[in-house]
Design a protein around this nucleic acid. Structure first.
Length: 197
DNA sequence: GGATCGATCGGCT
DNA sequence: GCCGATCGATCCG
């Protein structure tokens, strides 16, 4: 399978978010492939986006988003879960796409153990869930998805047609009216593996 | 140094 | 539908 190269990520963030739907996210763990097709994402775009972690400028936590595209931005949320983002756009411009849902494809048994759940539906439908299923934590923050030795990367897959894509407001965003209303959550309309309908 | 709170999830009512 | 878990980043003093 062909790995997605840096130029895939180094484009407009919403374009990348749209293009991510259907691609396969792969995690190599102790030589085993854990993977899934991306079915739900959210774009967080720059310091002007009030919902973006970079909205108040650069900090230790969000520094990865200011770096080159094609790297993972992983952070701890609510003291117990992790969220995986892929850095997009131009270096110096903080932007990333949050991966919110996967349709599990490989390594379901291992994912089930990591999640203490067996139903495929419960393995990776949600940003915290998929990080648990793929054993992704903050040690992956800053990881280069395009390096030859990468343990986390994307593989090119069959594109999702426009007719199958839906969009809406981002989940869990509060406060700023513009940030709440903008439809930057993209998902595969009929997928059973999106985090919520 | 201390208080606040979050791009969530699972269990319980 | 609601609530608690759990902790680091951030912000205020």
């Amino acid at each position: 399978m062909q790995r997605l190269a840096k130029r895939f990520y180094a484009r407009d963030t919403l374009t990348v978010a749209r293009s991510l739907l259907g691609q396969r996210l792969v995690r190599l763990r102790d030589g085993e492939r854990l993977s899934g097709a991306i079915v739900e994402v959210e774009a967080y775009v720059g310091e002007g986006d009030a919902a973006c972690h970079a909205s108040r400028g650069r900090t230790r936590r969000n520094a990865t988003m200011y770096g080159p595209p094609g790297h993972a931005y992983v952070y701890l949320i609510y003291g117990m879960y992790h969220c995986l983002n892929l850095v997009t756009g131009s270096e110096g411009e903080p932007a990333a796409v949050l991966i919110r849902g996967l349709e599990p494809l490989e390594g379901l048994e291992t994912m089930g153990k990591l999640r203490s759940r067996t139903e495929p539906r419960a393995l990776a439908s949600g940003p915290g869930r998929l990080c648990q299923a793929l054993d992704i934590d903050r040690t992956f923050n800053g990881a280069d998805l395009c390096a030859s030795h990468a343990q986390l990367f994307l593989e090119k897959s069959v594109p999702v047609p426009d007719t199958a894509v839906a969009c809406g407001p981002r989940v869990g965003v509060t406060g700023d009216a513009k940030a709440i209303s903008v439809p930057w959550r993209l998902y595969v309309q009929d997928s059973r593996f999106v985090s919520r309908r």
